[in-house]
């Protein structure tokens, strides 16, 4: 039986986010050799509890760098919790269009942090003809600010 795009996407989401918690050292197995990942930059005094709206991100290229990233940050990665609001997907790739573009939106948090609004985009590359095996070629985690301050235009000096 051939899986539908939706079935592949939903299964992927459970595998990806589930592995973060249960088996973070094996996260990099989900990615292709040349994958590009934009994820949370935990370096430089990382702190999620001082009132900032968005978190810094870092870009990693290649499976080896991705593996190092998830292993270095195992404590933070395995404590990530999510409220997923929506999941949109489209077929993408070459003529066969059997790759999948996924956009997930929601809020992300840790045991002792506030929530952070995010949109995460994935491209999954089909690595078998039967639509049953995929690897991530792109993973972009993007934080969305929600500031509330009032904007006031200063009159020009005459």
């Amino acid at each position: 039986m051939v899986a539908s795009t939706q079935e592949v996407v939903y299964t992927f989401l459970q595998t990806y986010y589930g592995r973060m918690k249960n088996d973070p050292t094996r996260m990099s197995n989900l990615y292709s050799t040349t994958a590009e990942v934009t994820h949370i930059n935990y370096q430089h005094g990382f702190n999620y509890d001082d009132g900032k709206e968005v978190l810094p991100t870092i870009k990693l290229i290649g499976k080896e760098n991705i593996n190092g990233f998830f292993k270095r940050n195992i404590d933070k990665v395995s404590d990530i919790k999510l409220m997923i609001n929506s999941c949109d997907f489209q077929n993408t790739g070459g003529v066969s269009r059997d790759d999948i573009l996924i956009i997930v939106t929601g809020e992300l948090f840790w045991s002792d942090s506030p929530t952070f609004k995010f949109a995460q985009t994935f491209v999954l590359n089909s690595i078998s003809n039967n639509y049953k095996s995929f690897e991530i070629t792109n993973d972009v985690l993007k934080f969305i600010p929600d500031s509330l301050e009032e904007y006031v235009i200063i009159p020009k000096k005459v």
């Binding site: 989401l13 409220m83 609001n85 929601g106």
Partner: peptide, 8 residues
């Protein structure tokens, strides 16, 4: 899947 979906 049902949304909102709580993960971990």
């Amino acid at each position: 899947l049902e949304f909102p979906l709580f993960v971990n």
